[in-house]
Simulated scan of single mutants.
Amino acid sequence: MEYASLPPGLLTTSLAAMAAGVSPDTIRDWKRRKILTPCGGSPRRPVYRVDDVLAAKLAPKPTRTGQRAHS
């Protein structure tokens, strides 16, 4: 279930993914890796600020040990 309406400037995981041009799984990964922090909602239905999503998209991502570089 999605929220019926959100205050302006806030995005659900799905909307944040569309705004950043990534998948919802990537948004959840950024949250898990502390690249993106929810500003409200609930643990199962977090919401994010638009500015935070766009900043996370541009932020350098820490690499994982053994991760292959994308060419």
Rank of each mutant, 00 (worst) to 15 (best):
P46K: 09
M1N: 09
R68A: 14
G41D: 05
V53C: 07
A4L: 15
K57N: 01
G41S: 08
A19D: 11
T65G: 08
E2K: 15
D25S: 07
T65C: 12
P43R: 11
R32E: 07
K31N: 13
R68M: 08
L6F: 03
A16H: 01
K34G: 02
P38D: 00
T63Y: 07
L58C: 12
E2R: 14
A56W: 00
S42F: 07
R64S: 12
Q67A: 01
D52L: 03
P8D: 05
W30C: 05
S14T: 13
G40S: 13
S23A: 09
P38E: 01
T13P: 10
P24V: 02
I35T: 14
M1D: 10
K31V: 12
D51F: 12
K31C: 10
P46N: 04
D29T: 14
V47G: 05
K61M: 02
A20W: 02
V47M: 11
A19K: 08
L11P: 00
L15G: 14
D25N: 14
D25P: 04
S71D: 12
S14I: 05
T37L: 14
R49G: 06
P38I: 07
G41A: 10
A4M: 10
G40T: 11
D25I: 04
T37V: 15
M18E: 15
V22S: 03
A16Y: 08
D52H: 12
V53H: 11
S5R: 09
G41Q: 02
A17I: 03
A69Q: 06
P24I: 00
L54E: 04
L54D: 01
S14Y: 06
G41P: 07
R44I: 06
P24Q: 01
K57F: 04
A19P: 10
Y48M: 04
I27P: 01
A16V: 06
R49F: 10
L58Q: 15
R33S: 12
V22P: 06
R32I: 07
S23D: 08
E2N: 10
G66Y: 00
S42E: 06
P62W: 03
G9D: 04
R44W: 10
A69L: 11
L6Q: 02
R44H: 14
R64Y: 08
A56R: 08
S23R: 06
Q67Y: 00
I35D: 07
G9A: 08
K34P: 03
A55L: 03
K31A: 15
K61D: 01
E2V: 14
L6M: 08
R32V: 11
S42C: 09
A55T: 02
V22D: 05
V47D: 01
P43W: 13
T26G: 01
D52K: 11
T65V: 13
A4P: 09
L54G: 05
Y3N: 00
D29M: 13
L54V: 08
G21K: 05
T37D: 04
H70L: 15
L54I: 03
Y3I: 02
R28Q: 11
K34F: 07
A56P: 00
P60V: 11
D29S: 06
K57P: 07
A17R: 05
